[in-house]
Amino acid sequence: TFELKGKVGKVVKIAEDHYLVEVEGDKWIAYSDEKLSLGDRVMVVDVDGLKLKVKRIP
């Protein structure tokens, strides 16, 4: 999972307290300090167990 840091993915689902992002064909639970929208491109900035911390990228 640490090899996911720096990888780019996209938001595929928005849940009440987390996001579902697809990175390299796999779906992961993710969270972010900013509000994300469906389809946003994101970069993995940290890995916390099986959850990814992501940030939006242009």
Rank of each mutant, 00 (worst) to 15 (best):
V12H: 14
M43Q: 08
V44E: 01
V23P: 00
V21G: 01
K35Y: 15
L38W: 10
L4E: 02
K55C: 07
M43H: 05
L38Y: 12
L20W: 04
A30L: 01
M43A: 05
V21D: 00
Y19M: 14
L20E: 08
M43S: 07
D17K: 12
I57L: 13
L38C: 07
G49F: 10
L36K: 01
A30N: 01
V21K: 00
A15V: 15
G25A: 14
V45S: 11
L4F: 01
L20I: 08
S37V: 15
D17A: 03
R41Y: 07
P58D: 11
F2G: 15
V42P: 02
K10R: 12
V8E: 13
V21C: 04
K55A: 14
K27L: 03
Y19A: 09
V47D: 02
Y31S: 10
G49T: 12
E22H: 05
E16N: 10
D26Y: 14
S37H: 05
V42S: 02
K13N: 09
E3G: 01
K35F: 07
H18D: 11
K51L: 15
L20H: 15
Y31N: 07
G25T: 13
R41S: 08
R56N: 07
L36T: 03
G25E: 10
D48I: 05
K51W: 07
L4K: 04
D46R: 02
D48C: 06
A15D: 08
E24N: 05
E34Y: 07
K13P: 02
V8K: 11
G9T: 04
L50A: 12
G25I: 11
V54K: 00
G9P: 00
T1C: 06
T1L: 05
L20N: 13
V47A: 11
V11G: 00
I29D: 08
D40K: 04
R41N: 13
E3N: 03
E34W: 09
V12G: 12
D33Y: 08
E24M: 05
E22P: 01
L38G: 07
G49R: 07
G49K: 15
V12T: 04
G9E: 00
V47Q: 12
V42C: 06
R41A: 04
R41K: 09
D33T: 12
R56Y: 14
S32P: 06
I14G: 09
D26L: 15
K13C: 04
E16P: 10
K7V: 01
L36Y: 14
Y19R: 03
K51A: 05
D46I: 05
L50S: 12
I29E: 12
E22K: 05
R56E: 11
V44R: 00
W28G: 02
K7G: 02
E22G: 11
V45E: 14
V11K: 00
R56S: 03
I57E: 14
Y19H: 10
G6Y: 01
K51R: 11
K27A: 04
D17G: 09
L20P: 01
K27D: 03
K13F: 13
K27M: 08
L52V: 13
L20Y: 12
D46K: 02
L52W: 01
V45A: 06
L50H: 13
L4A: 02
D40Q: 09
D46E: 10
E3M: 01
G6V: 00
D46S: 05
V42T: 12
G6R: 00
K51V: 09
L50K: 07
S32E: 07
P58R: 04
S32Q: 14
V42K: 00
L20K: 11
A30P: 00
K53H: 15
G39P: 06
I14N: 08
A30Q: 00
A15C: 05
I14T: 11
V47L: 10
K13S: 10
G6K: 00
G39F: 14
D46Y: 04
E3A: 01
K10I: 12
V47M: 13
E16R: 12
W28K: 03
V12K: 07
K10S: 12
E3V: 02
K5S: 07
A15S: 06
L38M: 08
L38V: 09
K53W: 06
V54R: 00
V12C: 03
V12N: 13
K51C: 04
V11E: 00
E16A: 06
I29A: 15
D26K: 14
D33C: 05
S37I: 08
K5T: 11
S37M: 05
D17E: 15
V45W: 13
M43K: 03
E34N: 09
V54T: 04
D46C: 03
I14C: 04
K13H: 10
V23Y: 01
D17P: 07
V12D: 09
E34G: 04
G49C: 06
P58E: 13
G9R: 00
L50V: 09
D48Y: 10
K51Q: 08
R56W: 10
V45T: 14
V44W: 01
G6H: 01
W28Q: 02
I29K: 13
V47E: 04
E34C: 06
F2I: 09
V8N: 10
K27T: 05
